[in-house]
Amino acid sequence: MSVSTQELKTKIIELFELDDVTPDEIGDDQPLFGPALGLDSIDALELVVLLERDYGIVIKDIEAGRPAFQSVRTLAAFIEAKRPA
């Protein structure tokens, strides 16, 4: 089963307490970290916890997650590739 970017956007909004953002406002290729959404390294760590909780993917080094955390699209692809069968 593939992960929809829509599902990830909803989770990201909830996880990051982005109260004034709707899923439609986040582009699939929009950078997650940086000025647009105002997310930072602590949010990246929250994302690590979410990946383990919801998809069973354990990340031990934040550098390993960095390429996947670029955008919702890269994140969905990462989950597809790493998700336990």
Binding site: I42, D43, L45, E46, V48, V49, E52, R53
Partner: peptide, 10 residues
Amino acid sequence: EREPMPSQFS
């Protein structure tokens, strides 16, 4: 020990 909360800790 699952689901620690990095933002709460920091």
